[in-house]
């Protein structure tokens, strides 16, 4: 880990409506929970009658395209990280990522297991973490309210950090993925001989240019 980039918050206030929009963003957080570990079990009580997180406008959503909030609820292995990154990149901006429980923070009780990632924030930007093993619903709700404050203040800007420091994150990710390459390379792309979309587009551009 060489250095961590922090963006300049003042630069981000480009829109005069940003404050108002942040209000809508904090009052309507749709979450996608990535149930890799045991943390997901704490979410049903948080959602249902006892604690009712819907009163803050927080609700579950089915796909990353729709969600604002990605919850990493538990430990992450090296292979599941690829899926987390794909999901995170499919989410629409502004998007927030919450590390849930101690495992995403420092590996938790799996800190010395060979496939488990100890520092999530090296690979994807984490806006907030909720400590605990597991955090109880009260802690979860408290964490979400803290996140709402951050959103209002514009401090939850992981998605910007990810874009600005993409090379750094990408390098870390690639280092990790190099270790998860399958040893037995089995499958072959059956359409490898077909031109790729880029080639087709380029060909078309060329033909259009020629016609003109």
């Amino acid at each position: 880990m060489d250095e961590i980039y922090i963006t300049n918050l003042e630069k981000e206030r480009e829109s005069m409506f940003e404050g108002l929009l942040n209000y809508f963003r904090k009052r309507s957080m749709w979450m996608l929970y990535y149930c890799t570990g045991c943390g997901a079990i704490e979410l049903p009580p948080t959602m249902t009658s006892r604690f009712d997180m819907e009163r803050f406008g927080i609700g579950p959503m089915a796909t990353p395209r729709q969600a604002d909030l990605l919850l990493i609820t538990g430990y992450l292995s090296q292979k599941t990280l690829k899926r987390v990154i794909r999901s995170y990149e499919q989410m629409q901006e502004p998007k927030y990522l919450v590390g849930f429980g101690s495992c995403p923070i420092n590996g938790g009780i799996y800190w010395d297991a060979y496939p488990v990632i100890n520092h999530l924030e090296m690979y994807v930007p984490v806006d907030m973490t909720i400590a605990g093993c597991m955090p109880r619903p009260q802690a979860v709700l408290d964490g979400f309210q803290r996140l709402m404050d951050y959103i209002q203040q514009g401090k939850a800007d992981g998605w910007r950090r990810y874009k600005e420091n993409y090379e750094w994150y990408k390098r870390n990710q690639d280092e990790l993925f190099a270790r998860t390459e399958p040893v037995l390379k089995g499958w072959k792309d059956p359409f490898a001989h077909m031109p790729s979309l880029e080639e087709v587009m380029a060909e078309e551009e060329r033909r259009k240019g020629g016609a003109r």
């Binding site: 929009l21 809508f24 963003r25 009052r27 309507s28 749709w30 406008g57 395209r65 604002d68 629409q92 901006e93 502004p94």
Partner: peptide, 12 residues
């Protein structure tokens, strides 16, 4: 709130 938030986000 939900609709306003949706319109404030980027889309693909």
């Amino acid at each position: 709130l939900d609709v306003f938030k949706c319109f404030s986000k980027t889309s693909i």
